[in-house]
Structure formats: C-alpha cells, structure tokens
Design a protein around this nucleic acid. Sequence first.
DNA 1: CTAATGACTCGAT
DNA 2: AATCGAGCCATTA
Length: 116
Amino acid sequence: MATSKKQPVGHNFFEDVYAVVKLIPKGRVTSYGAIARYLGTAMSARMVGWAMNAAHTIKKVPAHRVVNSQGLLTGKHHFETPNAMQERLEKEGVKVLKDKVLEFEKRFWDPAKELE
DNA sequence: CTAATGACTCGAT
DNA sequence: AATCGAGCCATTA
C-alpha cells in the first residue's frame, strides 16, 4: 500500500508551487514573482504561472489567490469562467474591481516573510 | 539539438 | 499611460 511510485505528477517543481499556494491564508493573495523568489533561483515568475496552468487541471490549488505584481487577475481566462476567479476572491473577502485586487499591498502575502 | 511559447517582472522610451 | 525589450527557465514541437 501507499508504495505507488511513478505518480502522474513526477514534477517536483509544480508541487513546490502548489505547496506555497495552498499555504496562502484565506483572504490573502500573492504574486507569481513572490513565490518564485521564495522557492529560489531555480524558479522564475514565468514558471510559476506555467505550474498554475497545470494546477488548474488538477484543480486542487487555490489559483485564484495568485495574481501578478500589479494585483491584476491575469489568469482569470484560464479558469472555468472568466468570472470564477473574481467571484472566489470576493467570496473570501477580497474585493476586486476591474480585475484588480483592492488594497493589494494589504492583501499581499509574501511567503518569504510570512514563512520566514 | 534549436526554436517558440507562456497565468511574469522590471526598466527604458 | 502605453508600448517595447530583455531576463527568466521549464515544457513542447
């Protein structure tokens, strides 16, 4: 039991990103670059976004809490519906106006600092 | 192997 | 404010 290896998810890279995203407190958001810096030099902001693309397939990651450095919901087009991302954020207490997180700096959750 | 792409970011124009 | 270019690195063709 539980000795199954060769999981379809053989990429550690993605799991690292998922782990951080899952740790984002409810009502908070973070950016791709922040996650990238926390994971290290082997990571780049683009890769985080790329990992999220796979994450949406798995659907176990609160990708709606990840936005770009401007607080814009850049990935909303990758959700089931373009509104899904905003709806979920508002549902958690994060106000979004025109695809942008309000009080982004206050909502911003930096893993490099919070997990320090 | 090379080339192109991407849910990014920053600085310059 | 808007646009462009370069850096970034994994994934795919």
